[in-house]
């Protein structure tokens, strides 16, 4: 019996080969006439004045922190989800407390204005 995750590796490899092959094929048949204007960043016809790589406000930063919290929480939910039908009320009450605490945290973040995108 082969390892089932070998399929994942093979699919990934075939995907990479496919992308590489199409790009190589395109390279063989496409024209290549570079010019200064062509290789300038596209800004709707206006000459770009500065790099795009400068300090900017990553507005989703707080969302990203919340995301990590909720993602980990969701990872805890899966083992519970598989068994809750068999474990019954006890498991449900436990998850209700867990979700309650999380919901309280979300409510707190909301109240503090962390969910505003301004």
């Amino acid at each position: 019996m082969e390892n089932q995750y070998a399929y994942v590796v093979v699919f990934g490899a075939v995907g990479i080969c496919f992308v590489a092959l199409t790009l190589t094929l395109a390279r063989l048949i496409r024209p290549n006439r570079p010019s200064k204007t062509k290789s300038a960043p596209y800004e709707c016809g206006i000459d770009p004045r500065e790099d795009a790589w400068q300090q900017f406000n990553v507005r989703y930063y707080v969302f990203a922190l919340l995301f990590v919290l909720f993602d980990v929480e969701a990872a805890y939910m899966y083992p519970w989800a598989i068994r809750v039908g068999k474990l019954g009320m006890f498991a449900f009450v436990e998850m209700a407390i867990f979700v309650g605490i999380l919901a309280f945290g979300l409510g707190y973040a909301w109240r503090k204005g962390a969910l505003r995108w301004e």
């Binding site: 969302f63 989800a81 809750v84 474990l87 449900f92 979700v99 979300l106 995108w117």
Partner: peptide
Amino acid sequence: MGFAWKCLVPIGLLAVLATGLVAAV
């Protein structure tokens, strides 16, 4: 962003609890 966090996430948490309750009962 607001729709996701203020609407869908609370609904999602409620949905998980409701599903869990139905399964537990």
